[in-house]
Design a protein around this nucleic acid. Sequence first.
DNA 1: TCTGGGGTCCTAGGACCC
DNA 2: TCTGGGGTCCTAGGACCC
Length: 368
Amino acid sequence: MLIDLDAFFASIEERERPELKGKPIVIGADPKQGKGRGVVSTANYEARKYGIHSGMPIAIAYKKCPQAIYLQPRIEFYEQVSDKIMNILKNYADAFEQVSIDEAYLDVSRRCQSFDDAKELALKIKNEIKEKEKLTCSIGIGPNKLIAKIAADFQKPDGLTIVKQEEVVTFLKPLSVRVIPGIGPKTEQALNRLGIKTIEQLQQFSKEELIRYFGSFGEYMYNAAYGIDESPVKESEEIKSISIQHTFEHDTKSKKLIYSKLRELINLLHIRLREERLSFKTITVKIRFYDFETHTSQTTLIQQSTSQALAFNIASKLIQPWLEKKKAIRLIGVSFSKLKPIKNYGQNYNQKDLTKYKTLTNKAPLLK
DNA sequence: TCTGGGGTCCTAGGACCC
DNA sequence: TCTGGGGTCCTAGGACCC
């Protein structure tokens, strides 16, 4: 079963401010009279009628519907609401996997003997979320995660779609290949060039053919076309990378501004690293120029580290060559990866260690 | 018309090792 | 003078997801 909360951020704001009900609501960057920088995070269904959707530049959304209510996201608050709902959902699952702030898979195959049982359970879940949190969700039920996901997207909002094993292939046939998770705009175009638009047309191709065109992803698409998916509902995943990035209000060439922002970002990222009790081995910096040309540079240390000073020292060195291009910069970002859990975190925080790391980093001894 | 932020996974080339 | 095979790790870029 996949449960997807409808227009989540916008629905929460509507709930909190009933006077907004029935009006188009757009959660995202400040549109600033159509000059804002950023994108739409969530549009409620009223706003979608104007052609506004998530990912759309906020300036375009503003042109389509200047009278909409534009709100900046309150992520921490949405996370609190999400946590409450996820805790409700856990009670209904044999295995539970949260995929994002507004989506989760529930394996209910042990507690449900039939799809009818599962439907009953889904209705209970919808009721409880409605009662306790005043929000609606769309639920897809299927023999595996892939079908549950496609089914959940099939009817929105407040939808409930059940696809039994014997219905899978027929259910998929008329749908666009685009509904298959992992097939985005680029792959859709590539498939279109082969004359494939629907899943039925995808089904006409042999596994070997698709592998020839798309490598291992071709095999995934072949299986998906027949609704085959064995992936388990995983309880939890370890974090593989943490990152932070910032788009400047105005593109800049100021090294002073760039380095101070870099310091700030690393500081924030390091707070998360410490909270999660992790060490890193790889540091990546990202830079985007005014023309959207984007580059990354990374360094892998010879050992795990938790040092913020080291991170800043290395990030500065990585970013420096890009600043020499004298092109205005739109965005900078930093990421830590090759993470490992670490005990005794506090130690790296006393002043002695920081000083020690600073002298060390001048010689960059941990660099290959 | 202008393009956020935080993630995962994959690919391809190169260095290096046995 | 020409040049195997298998494996791991690193780097950069890209597609995709919410």
